[in-house]
Amino acid sequence: MTNQALSGYYDNQLKILKYDPFLLYLRVKTIDGQLVNCLIVKHALTLFYQLKPDLPLALYGHYNQRHQFVITKFMVRLSAAELAG
């Protein structure tokens, strides 16, 4: 289980799989154009609050046995106008 970085855009596909603990599924389109299925548990509510369509993301995590990217750390790139308002 080696960790790796992944950068891309939120593909406007989102599902809440579980509420306790909060498990979120999202689809990310990488810079190469590939679609990657991602799961997040740690800080999932924060990511859920910040997501908007076609938003640039920087993700860090690993792939599980089902070839889903499990996110352990993330960064959402917001503009100054979005942060202020």
Score class of each variant (00 low, 15 high):
Pro53Tyr: 05
Thr30Cys: 05
Thr30Ile: 00
Gly33Ile: 01
Tyr49Met: 11
Leu24Tyr: 03
Leu26Lys: 07
Tyr60Phe: 10
Lys52Gly: 12
Lys29Tyr: 08
Leu51Gly: 06
Pro53Ala: 08
Lys42Tyr: 12
Val41Ile: 14
Leu57Ser: 06
Val28Ser: 08
Ala58Lys: 15
Arg27Lys: 14
Thr30Lys: 08
Thr46Leu: 14
Leu23Ile: 06
Leu24Met: 09
Thr30Asp: 07
Gly33Glu: 03
His62Cys: 12
Asp32Glu: 15
Thr46Glu: 14
Gly33Ala: 01
Asp54Pro: 01
Gln65Arg: 14
His62Val: 00
Tyr25Ile: 00
Asp32Tyr: 07
Arg66Phe: 10
Leu26Trp: 12
Lys29Phe: 10
Asn37Met: 04
Gly33Val: 10
Pro21Tyr: 06
Leu59Arg: 09
Gln50Ser: 14
Gln65Tyr: 12
Lys29Asn: 06
Leu26Pro: 07
Phe48Ser: 12
Val28Leu: 12
His67Tyr: 09
Leu47His: 01
Val41Glu: 15
Lys29Gly: 01
Leu57Tyr: 09
Leu47Met: 06
Gln34Asn: 15
Leu57Phe: 07
Val41Phe: 08
Asp32Ser: 15
Gly33Met: 08
His62Pro: 00
Gly61Phe: 03
His43Val: 01
Phe22Cys: 02
Tyr63Leu: 09
Leu59Glu: 08
Val28Thr: 10
Gln34Ser: 14
Arg66Tyr: 13
Leu59His: 08
Ala44Arg: 09
Leu47Ser: 02
Arg27Val: 13
Asn37His: 11
Tyr63Gln: 03
Thr30Tyr: 04
Tyr25Val: 01
Leu59Ser: 11
Thr30Val: 05
Leu51Gln: 02
Leu24Gln: 03
Val28His: 07
Thr46Asn: 11
Arg66Ile: 02
Tyr49Gln: 13
Ala44Pro: 01
